[in-house]
Every structure is written in C-alpha cells, then in structure tokens.
C-alpha cells in the first residue's frame, strides 16, 4: 500500500556564499572575538516549503503548479528523501523512482551500452537487472549501431532519446518527475508521450512538476498549486 503524508512540512535551507564557505572567516572570527563574524553569521536562509500538509493515496496522479522558485523541485526532493524537513513530518510508504535530471550518471566518453548499465544502476537497478534492461531500451531508443559509439558523438536529440529511454525503463511504485523537457523529432515526441503515459499508469502514485498545463491535463487527476513555498490550492479533476 503506497502512501505519502505531509504534516506541516517546512524545509528551510541555508545558502552558503563564498564568505561563509571560507575556513579563514571562521578562524578569523575566533581570533577577533567575533567582530568580523558578520560574514560567517550572514548565512541567508531560504524557506522553500512553508507549512505544507497533504496526503496522497494510491491512484493519485498529482501535478505541481507554480512559478519558478515556488517550491516544486524542493517538494519533489523532499518526497524523494534527499532533503529532510526542518519542521513537521514527511512519511512515505513505497519504493521511490525519480526522473529529475535526464543526464544523471551519464559519462560521455563511454558507449551507449555502457551508459545504459551505468545510468540504470545509478537510478537504483542492480548490475544484473541493468544489463537485462538493455534489449528493451535498445528497442525504444532506436539508435542502432550508435549504441556502441561513445556518447559524445551523439547529437542532442539522440542523447535525449537514450537518456529518456533509460530514465523511463523503471517499474515504479511512487514516481516523481521534474519537468521532462520534450526534445527529439516529431515521431520521437509521440512515442515518448506514449511511453511516459504507460510508466505513469503503472505507478501507484505519481507526482509531476511542470509549467505546461497540457502536460498536467494529460497525465494528472489532481493539481497542487504552490506560491512562495505555500500550498495555496488543491483541486481534483
């Protein structure tokens, strides 16, 4: 039974700039009794999520809506367990798969095949499982002999095809997606859409952050709207 529950979750994080990252400032501030410590204490804190509460049940396909910096990506990373809330609680039951950065784990010196295994393992598969995924990814990416070539020889479109094929080859319980940007030619776009719909369908819970109303309408049955880290609207459709 998959479930996600947030109770008054708040995520505040410090922004470290050059001054506060420097060991010298720390030492100088000890030596001078704190007179120059402004640079050290002056760590700006950003409240990226502010007192957010909601519950997601199986079958929920949630779209996250909001401007840049409204907290969508922070929320996704908090759900993924990357960020820990500084206040309130986040409870997640179920295995999480993420599609945040299509190129995660990619090494352009290695061949397409080597990258499939590397990226799939990066995203959580065992070595054996990653190798077993090759034929299916090979089929979908339609890169033919290019898969034996170093990835640095690929065009941008080919790279997206490979990365997208690997990222979506998961069998997710809870799927978290951050703004997958469409690329590749027209035909690939169509196939990518179809594949993403299938993955989303197989997930028990899906959360998608997107700026595109079309994507939200296509993939989701519930939308959460954020503004300055606060949840301001929760609607089902």
């Amino acid at each position: 039974m998959s479930k996600i529950e947030l109770k008054n979750a708040t995520v505040e994080y410090p922004i470290y700039h050059a001054d506060s990252m420097s060991l010298r400032n720390k030492i100088v501030s000890i030596g001078t009794g704190g007179t120059i410590s402004r640079g050290v204490k002056n760590i700006v804190t950003v409240k990226a999520l502010d007192d957010v509460s909601f519950t997601l049940e199986e079958g929920d396909r949630v779209g996250l809506i909001g401007h840049n910096g409204s907290g969508k990506s922070t929320l996704l990373r908090t759900l993924a367990g990357i960020y820990t809330p500084t206040g309130g609680s986040v409870t997640v039951d179920g295995k999480i798969s993420t599609i945040f950065d299509l190129n995660a784990g990619l090494d352009t010196e290695l061949s397409g095949y080597e990258n499939i295994v590397r990226m799939a393992m990066f995203l959580g598969a065992s070595g054996k499982k990653a190798r077993a995924m090759i034929p299916e990814i090979e089929d979908f990416a339609e890169l033919g002999d290019f898969l034996s070539m170093p990835v640095r020889t690929y065009s941008a479109g080919m790279l997206t095809r490979l990365a997208f094929a690997v990222a979506t080859a998961v069998e997710p319980e809870i799927l978290l997606i951050d703004e997958v940007i469409g690329a590749g030619d027209q035909r690939f776009q169509e196939r990518a859409k179809e594949r993403l719909i299938n993955v989303v369908k197989s997930a028990k819970i899906m959360v998608l952050a997107s700026h595109s109303d079309i994507m939200i309408e296509l993939y989701c049955n519930r939308a959460l709207t954020f503004e300055h880290g606060k949840l301001i609207k929760d609607e089902r459709f």
Binding site: E109, L110, R118, M121
Partner: peptide, 17 residues
C-alpha cells in the same frame, strides 16, 4: 557497494578511453 564499484570501474575506463 556494487554500484560504487561499477561507477569506480567505469570512471577508470572512461579516463583512459
């Protein structure tokens, strides 16, 4: 640990490709 080893190994291979 398998992932750590695989990444270490493929990093090494990539460096001397």
């Amino acid at each position: 640990a398998e992932l750590a080893f695989h990444l270490a190994w493929s990093d090494t291979r990539a460096r001397y490709r």
